[in-house]
């Protein structure tokens, strides 16, 4: 039986300013809200998935000030004044990013629930290391759990994506890929 902790107190809102996917946003948040709650429920960025809610699965990873963070363990008030990148901000409208293209190319997609986290981690890796070795890719993605077991294809995909990026192909036309 789940323990129900009732609390009748309601705490006042705190106004925070975040730069989300390049856009400045003012949001009113409760002090107990996590970043994932605010991103999903108040800003509609539903690419951020809640898997375990305790920082073990990596599905909720977003990039905050150039560092990947599990948004389920970050209090929303802590994101005040930070810049945040989610999957929605990865590519402009109508385009998809090289990492997404590579994942489609190697058929890594099964259910896709872990993908937002995997893509953000891969993005962070490729930003810092344009040509990672297999070892480095495995190390970077070792916190992202995938229930479908597409791990080997993630490694292939990140390698392919790094090739695309080094060739200067960052964005692909969505209509071209998703036929």
């Amino acid at each position: 039986m789940l323990e129900v902790r009732r609390s009748d107190v309601e705490y006042p809102d705190v106004e925070i300013v975040m730069k989300i996917n390049g856009e400045l946003k003012k949001v009113k948040v409760k002090p107990y809200e996590r970043l994932i709650d605010v991103l999903r429920n108040k800003l509609g960025l539903t690419s951020v998935k809640e898997g375990c809610g305790r920082g073990e699965c990596g599905a909720c990873v977003v990039i905050m000030d150039n560092r990947p963070v599990p948004s389920c363990l970050v209090l929303a008030v802590r994101a005040n004044g930070k810049s945040i990148l989610t999957l929605e901000g990865l590519a402009p409208e109508g385009k998809i990013h090289a990492i997404q293209k590579a994942l489609i190319d190697v058929h890594a997609l099964q259910c896709g629930f872990c993908f937002p986290g995997v893509i953000m981690m891969s993005k962070h890796l490729l930003d810092n290391n344009p040509d990672p070795s297999e070892e480095e890719i495995r190390e970077a993605l070792d916190g992202n759990l995938c229930r479908c077991g597409s791990y080997l294809r993630f490694v292939k995909a990140v390698k392919l994506a790094s090739k695309y990026l080094r060739e200067g192909k960052t964005y692909f036309d969505e209509s071209e890929v998703l036929r």
Binding site: L2, V4, R5, Y32, L75, V77
Partner: peptide, 16 residues
């Protein structure tokens, strides 16, 4: 209803 109550009861204040 139990689940929704649980998620609502994670309440605390934060001093910055």
């Amino acid at each position: 209803t139990v689940y929704s109550r649980v998620s609502l009861t994670f309440r605390f204040n934060v001093y910055i």
